[in-house]
Structure formats: structure tokens, C-alpha cells
């Protein structure tokens, strides 16, 4: 048996989610083909761009979530922290009249600080990630409402704010910036996870935290770093959200964290940690929005769309479990 196992030598741990990724990618293609056949409206440039645009926000959140999930942790606060980030951007730009770039930086910083605090409470106070980020979720939700006075902050007076997400920096190509930001963020996330020391420790932590600690890795420090990275991605999602809606909506955002987690899981990242890829997450996020969009085009009522997405999540995780059990 030993030799058989040895014969199955596999690549680096970073590639170990490969099969699940191929499966996810194949499902994405199948979905696209199915909806294209079902409705001629589906495979149109405008519709595809629409799908990508609707992927941007949850997609960027999912990218950030991938980091904590690979450590075996979870971040339930990304939805409402995203809201808080967009509210803070509104406060900086509309309320305080600061320049747009500073407002954007402030929004991203808000996300980073929230991630930092979650990370500190997990690493230093030993609160389980589920609880710590649940608390952060409520804190951010409350703060967003308090700071905004429960009213939306509109950017209508700020010239060009909605262009951040919706216009296109590439002339002639009608792809909104939000989509480009999503892909750029994915590239950045992919590099961080596979090419840098944070990524290495990320997988090590998720694989066996105690053994990593006993290897002399400062696990507390790196956990804080990783939750902060998640926070930065969350902040970026907040900016995209605010720009798309041309407003900061303090009541929106709760529930996005679960969609982000769903995208990560569909993309083959294991909730028990140690395994996962950014490409998988991108595919997972795309599957979610292709499904929603396609079902809408086929006039499936929204309530049923949610049911279908739920079933897809179950199937995705089930195939992953079956594959693991076979080994």
C-alpha cells in the first residue's frame, strides 16, 4: 500500500485543489452552455458584462475570505464591514469634503482596521474566529448605522465618483472598472497566496496550527496579518459597492459574507483549512452570478433562484467530500 501511495506523488500543496478547480470550471462552462442554449439573450456582450459586474462585489469579498478560510478560520464580518467602509468613504468625501483618493484610502483603511481588530481578538484573546468575527459583524453593522444616522450618504455631488466602478479605463472596450478591479484584486490575491511568505504561513496554519507554532513561526502575528488582508479586500469591495450605487447604504451588506463564503467553498477551498486557491474562488463567484443571471433570464422567480444556489452549494461541497474520502 505504501508504494501505491508513494506512486501518487502529487505537486505542491498549492496545486492540490486542482481537481476540484477543474470540476468547478467545467460546471461553469456547462452552465454557460446551458443558459446560452436556453435563451438567446444570455450569451450577449452586455449580459456577460452585467454578470461580471454583479460578480465584482461578492467576488472581491470572496477573495479576501479565501485567506482566512485557508487558515481554517472564517470571517463573518465582511458583509457589514464592507458597508462600514463605504459609509466611512461617504463621511470622508461627502461629510468632510476630503479629496476622493483620500476618501478611498480611508474606506480601505476602515476595512483593514476592522480586520486587524478581528485578528487581534482571535490571536491575542483566543476567541474562536466564528465568534470574534460575529461580534465584529454586529459592531460594524451598528457603527455603519450610527455614523450615517441610518440614512444613505449620496455621492451625487461628487463628480466622477460613480466612474470608479462603472466607467472604463480601457478606451473602446466597454468593460467597467469594477470588473477590472475584481480581476486585478484576484491577481494580487493569487500572488499573495502562492508566492509570498504570508501565503506559505497561510497554508501552514490551516494545515496544522500547533505544529506551525512549534516550528517557530510567530502564528499570532501572522493571523493578525491575514485577517487584516481580508479586511483590505473587504474595504475595496466597499468602495466598489459605494461607487456602483453612487451612495453608501448603511442598511445593505449583511448576508454578503455568506455569499462570499459560498463562492469560496464552491471554488474548492476547504472550510477545514490548508487547501484552496484564488482561481477557484474566482470561478466559484462566477458560478454564483451566472446561475442567478441565467435563472433570471429564464424567468425563474427570485425565490427559486435562491433555492437553486443552495442546492449548488450542497453539490459542490458533496463532490469535494467524496473526492477526499476516496483518497
Amino acid at each position: 500500500m505504501k508504494t501505491a501511495a508513494a506512486g501518487r506523488a502529487r505537486g505542491t500543496p498549492l496545486k492540490s485543489g486542482a481537481l476540484q478547480q477543474i470540476l468547478a470550471f467545467a460546471s461553469l462552462i456547462v452552465l454557460v452552455l446551458f443558459f446560452s442554449a436556453a435563451s438567446s439573450n444570455f450569451f450577449q456582450f452586455d449580459n456577460i458584462v452585467g454578470i461580471l459586474l454583479s460578480t465584482a462585489v461578492t467576488g472581491v469579498l470572496a477573495l479576501g475570505s479565501t485567506f482566512v478560510i485557508v487558515t481554517g478560520g472564517i470571517d463573518l464580518s465582511v458583509g457589514t464591514v464592507m458597508t462600514l467602509s463605504s459609509v466611512m468613504t461617504g463621511v470622508f468625501i461627502v461629510g468632510m469634503g476630503l479629496p476622493v483618493p483620500i476618501g478611498i484610502a480611508g474606506g480601505i483603511l476602515t476595512g483593514a482596521v476592522c480586520g486587524l481588530l478581528s485578528g487581534l481578538s482571535i490571536a491575542k484573546m483566543n476567541i474562536p474566529p466564528f465568534i470574534a468575527t460575529l461580534a465584529m459583524m454586529m459592531i460594524a453593522k451598528g457603527l455603519a448605522l450610527v455614523i450615517s444616522g441610518t440614512k444613505p450618504i449620496y455621492f451625487t455631488s461628487v463628480k466622477g465618483f460613480s466612474d470608479i466602478a462603472l466607467s472604463s479605463v480601457i478606451p473602446g472596450l466597454n468593460i467597467p472598472n469594477a470588473v477590472l478591479i475584481f480581476f486585478a484584486a484576484a491577481l494580487l490575491g493569487g500572488l499573495l497566496l502562492t508566492k509570498t511568505i504570508v501565503g506559505r504561513y497561510n497554508f501552514a496554519l490551516g494545515s496544522n496550527e500547533e505544529a506551525t507554532r512549534l516550528s517557530g513561526v510567530n502564528v499570532d502575528f501572522w493571523k493578525v496579518v491575514i485577517y487584516t488582508i481580508t479586511g483590505i479586500f473587504t474595504g475595496i469591495a466597499g468602495i466598489i459597492m459605494a461607487s456602483r450605487l453612487n451612495s453608501a447604504q448603511p442598511a445593505l451588506g449583511a448576508g454578503y459574507e455568506l455569499e462570499a463564503i459560498a463562492a469560496v467553498v464552491i471554488g474548492g477551498t476547504s472550510l477545514s483549512g490548508g487547501k484552496g486557491t484564488i482561481l477557484g474562488t474566482v470561478i466559484g463567484a462566477l458560478i454564483m452570478s451566472v446561475l442567478t443571471n441565467g435563472l433570471r433570464i429564464m424567468s425563474v422567480p427570485q425565490e427559486w433562484q435562491t433555492v437553486v444556489v443552495g442546492i449548488v452549494i450542497m453539490l459542490a461541497v458533496y463532490t469535494d467530500m467524496m473526492r477526499r474520502r476516496k483518497k
Binding site: 505542491t12 500543496p13 501552514a204 494545515s207 496544522n208 500547533e210 512549534l214 490548508g274
Partner: peptide, 15 residues
């Protein structure tokens, strides 16, 4: 406590 069994030899050696 000693090694990351789900990771490869080189990652364990480099950790």
C-alpha cells in the same frame, strides 16, 4: 506537533 502531514516534504523542511 511535529510536521504538517498534509503538506509536502519541502514545505515542511523550509517552514
Amino acid at each position: 506537533f511535529g510536521c504538517l502531514v498534509d503538506m509536502d516534504v519541502k514545505t515542511n523542511i523550509a517552514l
